[in-house]
């Protein structure tokens, strides 16, 4: 049997139950594939041992790109490529370039970060996700355990999930 195909799915009724459940399941030495929730549960990343997101760094770098792009564009266009006398003002002066620079910084930071998020989280409009339990977008918290990665029998894993507070345990196979 290959990994990433056969799962046991524990269904938890609320966020307190799933947080306690994660600690117990990990304490019993099981590897959790993922936990699906209808809303963000605070503390779940620590419980699962997920590292902090690096998206802020991506946003900063995209923002920096926006700032440099905007300044370069304005200075080159109005200062070098086609200098125009406008009310006798300097060809290149920073204050009137600030608004466009600010806007492009924000624009690139926002769009770049969101695009990074979409790609990193594999969000695409044309793909149908693997659904472990459709109730995970309604009111249940769903924990998926890969049967082939844990070296324990189905019955053992099922018992661990039930002991951890799962209200039901189902098997889910993907082809």
């Amino acid at each position: 049997m290959d990994a990433d195909k056969n799962f046991l799915v524990g269904v938890f009724d609320d966020e307190d139950a799933v947080l306690k459940g994660i600690k117990k399941v990990r304490g019993a030495g099981l590897k959790i594939h993922d936990v699906f929730s209808p809303f963000p549960v605070h503390g779940i990343d620590d419980a699962l041992g997920i590292k902090k997101s690096r998206l802020p760094i991506a946003a900063f770098l995209f923002g920096l790109t926006g700032t440099s792009l905007a300044l370069t564009m304005q200075i080159w266009m109005l200062g070098y490529d086609w200098p125009m006398i406008i009310g006798g003002k300097n060809f290149v002066s920073l204050p009137p370039f600030i608004p466009v620079t600010f806007e492009l910084t924000v624009l690139l930071a926002a769009l770049g970060m969101v695009a990074t998020f979409m790609i990193a989280s594999n969000l695409k409009p044309y793909s149908w996700p693997r659904q472990f339990d459709v109730r995970s977008t309604d009111d249940k918290h769903v924990m998926a355990i890969d049967l082939d990665l844990n070296g324990k029998s189905k019955a053992e894993i099922s018992q661990i999930l039930k002991d951890a507070g799962a209200s039901e345990v189902n098997e889910k196979n993907f082809e």
């Binding site: 993922d34 699906f36 963000p40 779940i44 990343d45 989280s121 995970s136």
Partner: peptide
């Protein structure tokens, strides 16, 4: 899907 990592991001 609403996985834990996706929600965190």
């Amino acid at each position: 899907q609403g996985g834990a990592k996706t929600w965190m991001r």
